[in-house]
Design a protein around this nucleic acid. Structure first.
Length: 528
RNA sequence: GGGCCAGUAGCUCAGUUGGCAGAGCACCGGACUUUUAAUCCGGGUGUCGGAGGUUCGAUUCCUCCCUGGCUCACCA
């Protein structure tokens, strides 16, 4: 965090003079930090370099996990004869006078160090006592197993590689405070193995998703994040400004319209797995920037995508979890076997207890809506009301994997109309554990129809719907050159990661989630 | 944005019906050559989230604000 210029922050600042606050606000550092600083100064005064440029030969450092595997058979109280170099952070020290044990944490886990005056010499042994928990060191020595059976490195020499000036969280309870865990995620990941596991699952999920698509001939592309017309979804965008061009730009809410331009260009399988930005509420299920997969395949329709997505989700979950099964709050959900299929209207009819039909008068649907406490804004038509009622009454109750088919045309301005079901499109979503996991449809390729849809959206926008899709003339021009029939899909990666890890808060699966600034809302000084 | 709940030491948490602020870990000093939440002896290191108010006296009561969690609204 860059230090704020003195006097710049207002009196609302919190945590002044706190023990971990090194004069961020002109206060004195706390006792624990003063002690570490004076150790640092003493170390430098004696000619030490507390922040080394490197340690050991590249690629030669032993990692804790590998050592545990390699020396599994080593008997308690015996040595291996192998000398290794290890490096990591000191997480605990158990000192016994002329011998001491330290737990060293590296990227794979932990390994114990055994330090003895006999092995190190009096001076080096005493100097070890000056180190703090949290310091990063490198050490060499023989791999042994202690009398109590702990694999250890019997240290013959060690070096301080990086001095830690702040005390770590408590060794037994760890770091629990949610706010601190998210604000200082590095501490969370350092202290809490569970946090690492969630992150590793997310990484594996993304990797397996890419592998699935790459294996099927999809090409990963990057399309603009800064857009002149924020399209491809209905959401409020972030606005930013380009100084040289003197114009506002928008952070993308979806890559859809650019990916479809690539279908027009002649690519038949493209995908993008990257960030979208939506300027909407922040909650346990919404982060302003979130990760989305969108994939498009030419010459297939939404029926093909159902099986494609079922296979993709099952494959990815199986690869990450080792079984095609999820566990959420003790509830086990199997992904095996065929998934249920139901149209939105049939599902709504079932749960609402009446046979809903899109041909109903709007007033009749409005009555049904008010009976279920659904507010209907001005300009909303039958399709909107049906979708809203479905989301409220049906979605949370769809626990087993379910395809919900045929979304209203009114809320699907980029999807092909369903010729067998007037008012609806060839679109489906996949619901698992009450959550929308994937959205897919047969793409609308008819430029005349697309123009009419945009104009319908423009009327909604004029009526005050800020989220209605704007008319995109450039996209219409591209469509007029001819786009092959195609199916497109979108998967919310963060939501899928939540499902996969059983996390109920999206912040658990995003490494650095958005949080309100601590203590004030000032911009970065010097940045316009 | 609305409602409810929370913020006390570096960390995990007690506590004060309004009267000098507590524990464990961490830290500091001492003992200890195979421990692993090491142990033993000694030491509290704090603007009790912030600003006002009531009061002889506020960490405690009141008001406002900040931050977070849950929830509703909006959405993915």
């Amino acid at each position: 965090m860059p230090a704020a210029p003195a006097g710049r922050r207002g009196p609302v600042m919190t945590a002044e003079n706190r023990n971990d606050d090194v004069d961020a606000h002109g206060g004195e550092p706390g006792e624990l930090i003063r002690v570490r600083r004076s150790k640092l100064e003493k170390y430098i005064a004696e000619g030490g370099e507390p922040y080394r440029p490197s340690y050991g030969e590249p690629g030669e450092l032993a990692l804790s996990g590998d050592l545990h595997g390699e020396f599994e058979e080593l008997q308690p109280g015996s040595g291996s004869g192998s000398t290794v170099a290890v490096a990591g952070r000191i997480m605990a020290v158990r000192s016994h006078g002329k011998a001491a044990f330290a737990d060293l944490q590296d990227s794979q886990g932990r390994i114990q160090l055994l330090l003895r005056e006999d092995g190190l010499g009096e001076e080096a042994y005493r100097a070890f006592g000056w180190l703090d928990i949290g310091d990063i060191i490198g050490a060499t020595g023989e791999v042994i197993r202690s009398r109590r059976g702990e694999l250890s490195v019997a240290v013959e020499s060690y070096e301080l590689l990086s001095k830690s000036l702040r005390p770590l969280p408590e060794k037994w309870h760890g770091l629990k405070d949610h706010e601190t865990r998210f604000r200082r995620r590095y501490l969370d990941l350092m202290m809490n193995p569970d946090a690492r596991l969630v992150l590793e699952n997310r990484v594996a999920l993304i990797k397996e998703t890419r592998r699935f698509l790459d294996d099927r001939g999809f090409v990963e592309v990057e399309t603009p994040m800064l857009q002149q017309i924020p399209g491809g979804a209905t959401a409020r965008p972030f606005v930013t400004h380009h100084n040289a061009l003197g114009m506002n730009l928008y952070l993308r809410i979806a890559p859809e319209l650019y990916l479809k331009r690539l279908l027009i260009a002649g690519y038949d399988r493209v995908y993008e797995l990257n960030r979208n930005f939506r300027n909407e509420g922040i909650s346990s299920r919404h982060n302003p920037e979130f990760t989305m997969l969108e994939a498009y395949q030419a010459f297939v329709d939404y029926r093909y995508l159902m099986e494609f997505l079922r296979e993709m989700i099952t494959t990815v979950v199986e690869a990450v979890r080792g079984a095609a099964e999820l566990e959420i709050d003790g509830e086990r959900i199997s992904l095996a076997g065929p998934w249920k299929k139901v149209t939105m209207v049939d599902a709504l009819s079932e749960y609402a207890g009446v046979d809903v039909d899109i041909s109903w008068e709007t007033s009749r649907l409005e009555k049904l809506a008010s009976r279920h406490d659904v507010e209907v804004p001005g300009g909303a038509g039958p399709g909107w009301i049906i979708a809203e009622l479905y989301e409220k009454l049906v979605e949370p109750r769809l626990r087993e994997p379910t395809f919900v088919l045929d979304y209203p045309e009114e809320i699907s301005p980029l999807a092909r109309k369903n010729p067998e079901s007037p008012g609806f499109t060839e679109r489906f979503e996949i619901l698992i554990a009450g959550q929308e996991i994937a959205n897919a449809f047969s793409e609308l390729t008819d430029p005349v129809d697309q123009r009419e849809r945009f104009e319908g959206q423009a009327r909604k926008r004029a009526a005050g719907d800020e989220e209605a899709h704007p008319v995109d003339e450039e996209y219409l021009r591209a469509l007029e050159y001819g786009m092959p029939p195609a199916g497109g899909l979108g998967v919310g990666i963060d939501r899928l990661a939540m499902l996969l890890t059983g996390c109920k808060n999206i912040r658990d699966v995003i490494i650095f989630p958005h949080l309100r600034p601590e203590g004030g809302r000032e911009s970065v000084p010097g940045v316009e």
